[in-house]
Simulated assay, not measured.
Amino acid sequence: MADIDDRWHRKGPDGKQQRTDRYGVGARWLLRWREADGTQRKKSFQRKADAEQYATTVEHGMMSGTYVSPDAGKITVGEWAARWLQAQGHLARSTFARYEIAINRHIVLKWGRVRLSAVKHADVQAWVSGLAGEWSPASVVKVHRVFSQVLAWAVRDGRLARNPAEGIRLPRPSLPDHRYLDHAEVAKLAERCGSYGVVIRFLAYTGLRWGELAGLKVGRVDLVRRRFLVAESVTEVNGALVWGSPKTHERRSVPLPRFLVEELRPRIEGRADDALVFMAPQGGVLRVRNFRRNVFDPAVRDVGPAGFHPHELRHTAASLAIASGADVKLVQQMLGHKTATMTLDLYGHLFPDRLNDVADRMDAAVSAPNVPRE
């Protein structure tokens, strides 16, 4: 419990009220309390009402588990962000690298020397609004997300009572204008890529991310069942190859069209299970930067569309699957999306509009002979 006394209200040698003491000018009421770990705390106030109000806050915080020690928020944001980053060893290396860039390039630059307890919601909003004038909406959202995670960690550690980065108004990223190749365009691009045409067709008809294609091993491919298992991915981070699980950390089975089975057969049969299906010219992992520079980008410059990049073949796979009659759950499974909602957010406009079909079925049901009419 917190105790209040006024023993700092003293008379001076002349008999008058003494207005100054070591707790501050006019400090009269002293609040004492003890934290859960036994640490003794005290704070002085000029008015008893202020002391009582603060005492109520302290007691409520201790009872509800929301109490924050006055010293807990004295650590700087820069120090705390470094601790938080060190605790993110569970993240994929590529994700860790993005978080590190957000902290070093943006967060520490603005907040590095500021105490955690001094971070205010209005100041965070002003900072985010300033970033929105310099960076793309998507970049601002990512930087804010990292900052909010850092502060949320401080809340869980008892250093902040609440997260001042919550409820910030963020710029709304515009939905990208996806480009989709049709079958003829895929064939044309694949032909221009020569011996690597199979890579183009594989991406365009399976929807794999590049890291999943580059990490696909022979033992994961079943040509008889026309299926392969996406179980790992390889990413280049600061020039180094990092192996890990797919983006959603879940394995998935993806179907193979028959024409791809025949193209893959020479790359599968007679090879070791741990061999890579797709390899660089000199062996080893097929790196996207090298592939783009040496094969893909020259082909795109010749046959178009201008500026097309390998990830757009994933969008192409989604559009071709939907056009062939695949429903949203099948497309979700093929692409490895976390939820069907994500699939619909990206490709919902490609699914055929069947609202009239629903209305027609309702008309037919109501018009059935066995439906009573007034």
Rank of each mutant, 00 (worst) to 15 (best):
A152S: 14
T20M: 07
W111H: 09
A82S: 15
P310V: 06
L320M: 09
A82R: 14
W127F: 01
G24M: 13
E59R: 03
A365R: 07
Q17Y: 09
G38D: 08
D297K: 13
E185C: 08
P171F: 11
L229R: 07
A275L: 11
T341P: 05
V242N: 04
D21Y: 11
T248W: 01
Q18H: 14
F147T: 00
Q88K: 11
G167F: 10
V108W: 08
A275T: 08
E59M: 14
D345E: 14
H144Y: 00
Y347G: 01
E79Y: 09
Y196K: 03
I200V: 10
G348H: 04
S253L: 10
I322F: 01
L91P: 02
L350Y: 00
Q53D: 13
D14T: 09
Q88M: 14
A299F: 06
M62K: 05
V358P: 00
L31M: 09
R172P: 02
G158A: 03
H309S: 13
R227H: 09
T248R: 01
Q86W: 11
F291H: 01
V128N: 03
V371L: 12
S245H: 12
V58S: 03
R265G: 10
M342H: 07
F351H: 10
A97E: 07
A132F: 10
A126R: 15
R289K: 12
N163Y: 08
R314A: 02
P352K: 07
R301V: 09
Q332F: 00
Q333M: 06
G78K: 03
P305K: 15
A87V: 06
V288I: 12
D222H: 01
V366S: 08
F147A: 03
G197P: 02
L181H: 08
G244L: 08
D37L: 13
P257I: 07
R287M: 12
T341S: 09
D71K: 01
N238T: 06
V108D: 13
H178M: 12
G61T: 02
F291K: 06
V119E: 07
K74V: 02
W8G: 14
M334C: 02
S195I: 10
T39N: 07
D123C: 09
A154W: 00
L346Y: 06
M62R: 01
P369I: 08
A49K: 15
A82E: 15
L313Q: 03
Q40N: 14
P305D: 05
G219D: 06
G270I: 12
A92G: 10
P257C: 05
P255T: 07
I103R: 14
W29A: 01
M62C: 10
R115M: 15
A97I: 04
V331E: 04
L229W: 14
R226H: 08
G215F: 12
R7T: 07
A2L: 04
E269D: 14
H337M: 01
R113M: 05
L346F: 11
G15C: 15
N356T: 12
R201G: 01
R22E: 09
R271Y: 11
F278D: 00
